[in-house]
Structures are given as structure tokens and as C-alpha cells.
Simulated assay, not measured.
Amino acid sequence: MPSSPLYIQIKRFISEQIDSGRWPVGHRITTEIELTKQFDVSRMTVNKAIRDLVNEGKLQRKPRAGTFVCQSPEKAESPLLDIRNIADEVAQRGRSYRSEVLKQVAIKADDRIATQLGVMFGKDIYFSEIIHFEDNTPIQLELRWVNPLYAPSYLQQDFSAITPNQYLSDNCPLSAIEHTVEAIIPEDNVRNALALSSVEPCLLLNRRTWSHDKLISTALLYHPASKYKLSSKILLQ
């Protein structure tokens, strides 16, 4: 398996220093020249890694002074007891949304997915893997399995233009949801997709959705813990 691009490796190194507390807020980070020598790369490669972290709000450049660790930006927030279109959430925060579709295929249901989706083992189902971005920062990795009986045109959708949530909500009106949330240390594929450091945890939301009495989809939604939070509001009578 090929290694990550060099600028990603440098970005992870800096993020690890910040996330571990070795470089606290206000700390002046290693200079670009020093990082160039440390990683044996071009100044342009180091500059791209730092520029990305500046855009994500982790670093701040001060002219003639250097680059410093910033206070963590306010986390994006989603409701736990409801389902909202992530594209709409990002737009409501005044940010720019885009997505990158990694997979959109028909597969055979394995034991776990057959149980989660309420279908027979080995049945043909649909699967999609999508990274959702806010201002070019990845904020969610979505793995979704769908029963094709209820969403037959799922594979024909352009999920760079609409989200799976939007398509399913329009075609299979939501009647019930099941959510579980856990904090995890992500595996390499998740960490790479979300551009995380090796020490940053994820929030993993397990979701199943029904339309009337039909179980439509099951999904795993990974969020960077440093950039995302889930909340709920309950009205007591």
C-alpha cells in the first residue's frame, strides 16, 4: 500500500504535536526551513502542509514572527435525535460544502451488514463511501449500505451534486431512526480520509433508518472529534 503524500505526513506530524499537547496554544512551531531539513522535502511541500493547517484554524501565521498554534476553532454540530442533510448544515454555518465519492457500487451483504440491514446473507445491496467537506476540510466519512428494493436508482445518483441523505429522504420518507455513538481510535483508511493525526480520536455514529415499516439503510458516520460534536435537546412536559 503506497504511503501518504509527503505534505500529509508533515501535516500529521504537526497535528500530532498539537493534539498531544507538546505544542500548546501560542507555541511557535518549528520553522519551514527546519521542517524542510527534517523531512528532506522542498519548501513548497512544507508550505502546503502549514497552509492547510492555517486554513483549518490550527495554526496562525504572524509576519516576521513565525507560525503559532491557535485556539481550537468552534466545533461543527449535528443533532443526535434528528437527521439533517450535511450539505444544509454546512451552508447554514455560512461555509462551503463539497463531497468526494470514493465508492458507489453493488456488493453482496456479509454477516454483519445482512443483520444490520435486515436482509439475507449474500443478497445484492448497494454501498457508497463518501467524504464530506466543509471549506475543504473533511468533517465526515460516510459508509452507507442500502436495500436496493426500496432505493432502486441509488447507484445512478450523482452524489457529488446531492447527498445520499437528500436522495433517500426524497424517495423514502423517514419514519424512524436508530442511533448509537462511540468514541474510537480510527483505522488507517478513516484517518487518511479525514486527514487526522495518529493520536486524534473519532466520533462514530452508527445509524439505521426506516421508512414506514421498511428498513432502508444502515450507515457508519465518522467525524473528527476535534472538529465535530453531536447534541440533543429533549423537552420535558
Rank of each mutant, 00 (worst) to 15 (best):
residue 2 P to S: 12
residue 3 S to Y: 09
residue 7 Y to Q: 08
residue 8 I to L: 14
residue 10 I to R: 10
residue 13 F to H: 05
residue 14 I to W: 11
residue 15 S to G: 14
residue 15 S to F: 12
residue 16 E to A: 11
residue 16 E to N: 13
residue 31 T to W: 02
residue 31 T to K: 02
residue 32 E to R: 07
residue 35 L to D: 02
residue 38 Q to H: 07
residue 38 Q to P: 02
residue 43 R to K: 05
residue 46 V to H: 00
residue 47 N to T: 03
residue 47 N to E: 02
residue 50 I to C: 01
residue 56 E to H: 04
residue 61 R to H: 03
residue 68 F to K: 06
residue 69 V to M: 04
residue 70 C to V: 03
residue 72 S to K: 06
residue 74 E to Q: 12
residue 75 K to G: 06
residue 76 A to C: 08
residue 77 E to W: 12
residue 78 S to Q: 11
residue 78 S to R: 14
residue 87 A to T: 01
residue 88 D to W: 05
residue 89 E to N: 14
residue 91 A to Q: 13
residue 92 Q to Y: 07
residue 92 Q to F: 07
residue 95 R to V: 03
residue 98 R to W: 03
residue 101 V to I: 12
residue 104 Q to R: 11
residue 104 Q to A: 03
residue 104 Q to Y: 07
residue 104 Q to D: 04
residue 107 I to E: 10
residue 110 D to Q: 11
residue 111 D to C: 10
residue 111 D to K: 15
residue 111 D to Q: 15
residue 116 Q to L: 15
residue 116 Q to W: 13
residue 117 L to A: 07
residue 118 G to T: 05
residue 120 M to K: 13
residue 120 M to T: 13
residue 122 G to S: 10
residue 124 D to G: 01
residue 128 S to G: 09
residue 128 S to R: 12
residue 129 E to R: 14
residue 133 F to E: 06
residue 133 F to N: 07
residue 138 P to S: 15
residue 141 L to D: 03
residue 141 L to I: 02
residue 141 L to G: 04
residue 143 L to M: 07
residue 147 N to S: 03
residue 150 Y to L: 01
residue 154 Y to L: 00
residue 154 Y to R: 01
residue 156 Q to E: 02
residue 160 S to E: 08
residue 166 Q to S: 11
residue 166 Q to P: 04
residue 167 Y to M: 02
residue 168 L to R: 03
residue 171 N to I: 04
residue 172 C to T: 09
residue 178 E to G: 08
residue 178 E to F: 01
residue 179 H to T: 06
residue 179 H to C: 01
residue 179 H to G: 01
residue 181 V to A: 04
residue 184 I to K: 15
residue 185 I to D: 15
residue 186 P to Y: 11
residue 189 N to A: 07
residue 193 A to K: 12
residue 193 A to R: 13
residue 197 S to H: 14
residue 201 P to Q: 14
residue 202 C to V: 13
residue 204 L to S: 06
residue 205 L to W: 05
residue 207 R to P: 06
residue 215 L to P: 09
residue 219 A to L: 07
residue 223 H to P: 10
residue 229 K to A: 13
residue 229 K to V: 11
residue 230 L to H: 13
residue 232 S to A: 10
residue 233 K to Q: 09
residue 235 L to D: 00
